[in-house]
Design a protein around this nucleic acid. Structure first.
Length: 545
RNA sequence: GCGCCCUUAGCUCAGUCGGAUAGAGCAACAGCCUUCUAAGCUGUGGGUCGGUGGUUCGAGUCCACCAGGGCGCGCCA
């Protein structure tokens, strides 16, 4: 139908002509025109069976693609401020980013996994003040929290108890040297840099521990502070200035909802509107220091300079308003040579006993990544986080996550793999492990595989490489989870067919040829499940317990 | 007020490049265990794809407007 216009022929006529040609191909069993110009093709079963040896020889590498042609891609994810443990929102970004990176790598891109540490800004300063408060407490200060809070610029934040060990370590190393006599607060010039460094180091270590629990390992941890110290921010602003994209100006207040303390103010602005953003964006605060955006431009400039034509950032939905300005900045600073894509992850609501778990940072009642892993396990967390499109909100039902039923996709897929392994173990007892090695099964004659449910399963297996490429191009790792679920359903169906019809069971006593062909199919199914779970960072299980 | 995301079966969600009669699970109903794990499988019923227009041979998919939900909106990160 697409070709009809350039060919100047009616779609149905063109379809008939195509059919006449296609029917000649040896792989094609039937071809017929259909509907308004479709062509229905039916491949010979032999053409389908022929995919199995390739799967068995490729192993977990089945589905690897040359699509990316080795092009460099930088995937930045998590990038939580180093101010405390990771919570469930970070968790989704971590899993989505990690799976996306694995997916792109499988699709043939040269992927760098990166974490941007915001270790320079006001949040980290607030963290230092919070740690210092705990330090004074360790020393036995007479100050009340209220008194101390009055001394802190912007007030005391980060009251969580997780800072106490950091303060204790400081006290262990420095004694009372960072405090005034009597465990009172000393001049910040005396302690601030030391405390901030210790706090950031401790929080970074904690975050990396959390990520390790989740099985996330990134290649690069980029430091905002290092960029600032090396002058990267000034260079980036100078670069934009040379391109005529920086000016001093006054922004209009947001339409309809003017902040109460709004007053017109001249600022250093980036001409983001020249690259599709709604308004130009400030790079300097009124006190002359750089905005977060300015630092972020320098960071993205750094990534571009490191040779990445494609940058992918995985962000929380609360940063949605930030996307267009960052895309504008990347377009500006690279002269259009590099592109930024942003994958936004919407909020995750946790359900326990069917009720939403209330989260309040102030009350310290938010669900941490560690909590979640303690409750349901790493593999379940990773799989469930990939059972929704990232730009749709998600409910994480703790009860469903540990349920041993078809409702739980993790269980369902794992169960299929365990069943595969169970059959192969039984087969190995009958025929010996050597005969059931994947390389050996790849040599088996397969012509006995002819049942519709068997061919349906093979068709699914054959679709894996395309599914990988499509998911990689769409930047949608959740598709892998759905593919595996469908694959598991095909397998469970075939398994149960053997109950109704004993000739369809995988293991046929005294019929080695049929059995080996079926074991090749089972082994190939297990391979594809493992290949998919590997992308998701989920461990396949050998048996259910 | 403005911008971005979402809206598909009673519920939770898929839906590939715009392609034929829109698919799963749960819930409801009816079945399947002398058998490689019944933790599973089979079948039935269930739809104005939020609404209205438009583009197209063809729209859940693209465009415009509207409604509802979420997120954000100068010197936080």
């Amino acid at each position: 139908m697409v070709a009809a216009k350039p060919a100047r022929q009616a779609p149905a006529k063109l379809a008939s002509a195509l059919v006449a040609l296609l029917i000649e191909a040896p792989e094609i069993a039937a071809a017929e025109p259909a509907g308004p110009g479709f062509v229905n093709l039916r491949l010979h079963p032999q053409a389908w069976r022929a995919v199995l040896p390739g799967i068995l020889r490729a192993g977990i590498g089945y589905g690897d693609s040359a699509l990316g042609a080795g092009a460099a891609v930088n995937v930045e994810y998590v990038s939580a401020n180093p101010t405390g443990p990771l919570h469930i929102g970070h968790c989704r970004g971590a899993v989505v980013g990690d799976a996306l990176a694995a997916l792109l790598a499988k699709a043939g891109f040269a992927v760098t996994r990166e974490y941007y540490m915001n270790d320079a800004g006001a949040q980290v300063a607030a963290l230092a003040w919070a740690v210092y408060w705990r330090y004074l407490q360790v020393l036995g200060t007479a100050l009340t929290e209220e008194d101390y809070g009055a001394l802190v610029p912007g007030g005391l934040q980060y009251r969580g108890e997780y800072l106490i060990p950091v303060a204790e370590a400081l006290a262990g190393e420095h004694g009372a040297a960072l405090a005034a006599p009597g465990a009172g607060p000393a001049d910040p010039a005396l302690w601030f840099a030391t405390v901030r460094a210790a706090a950031v180091a401790a929080m970074t270590a904690a975050i990396r521990e959390d990520l390790a629990l989740l099985g996330v390992h990134q290649d690069v941890f980029a430091s905002e502070q290092a960029l600032v110290e090396h002058g990267a921010v000034d260079r980036a602003i100078a670069d934009l200035s040379e391109r005529g994209l920086i000016y001093e100006g006054v922004l209009e207040p947001p339409k309809g909802k003017t902040p109460e303390d709004w007053e017109p103010r001249a600022q250093t602005l980036f001409r983001a509107t020249a690259f599709g953003d709604d308004v130009d964006r400030p790079l300097r605060k009124s006190d002359g220091s750089n905005t977060y955006f300015a630092n972020d431009i320098a960071y993205h400039a750094d990534k571009i300079a490191r040779g990445f034509p494609t940058l992918i950032d995985v962000w929380g939905a609360d940063h949605g308003g930030y996307v267009s300005r960052m895309k504008a900045a990347v377009a500006a600073i690279s002269g259009g040579a590099a592109g930024l894509e942003v994958v936004l992850c919407q909020i995750v609501h946790v359900l326990k006993d069917g009720q939403p778990v209330r989260m309040s940072k102030r009350a310290g009642t938010y669900v941490t990544l560690r909590d979640l892993i303690d409750w349901v396990g790493r593999d379940v967390v990773r799989f469930i986080m990939l059972t929704r499109k990232s730009d749709a909100q998600m409910e994480f039902d703790l009860d469903q996550a540990v349920a041993q039923t078809r409702e739980n996709p993790v269980f369902y897929v794992q169960y299929a793999h365990a069943r595969c392994r169970s059959v192969l173990r039984a087969g190995a007892e009958a025929y010996g492990a050597a005969a059931l090695a994947e390389a050996a099964l790849a040599e088996m004659p397969l012509d006995s595989l002819a049942a519709e449910a068997e061919l349906a399963l093979i068709r699914r297996l054959a679709a894996w490489p395309r599914a990988v490429e499509a998911a990689a191009l769409a930047r949608e790792p959740h598709r892998i989870a759905f593919f595996l679920y469908d694959l598991a359903a095909d397998f469970h169906m075939l398994w149960n067919k053997g109950r109704d019809e004993s000739t369809l069971r995988f293991l046929q006593a005294d019929r080695a040829r049929e059995t080996h062909a079926r074991l090749a199919l089972v082994a190939a199914t297990a391979v594809v499940i493992r290949s998919g779970l590997a992308l998701m960072g989920v461990t396949p299980v050998e048996e259910m317990r």
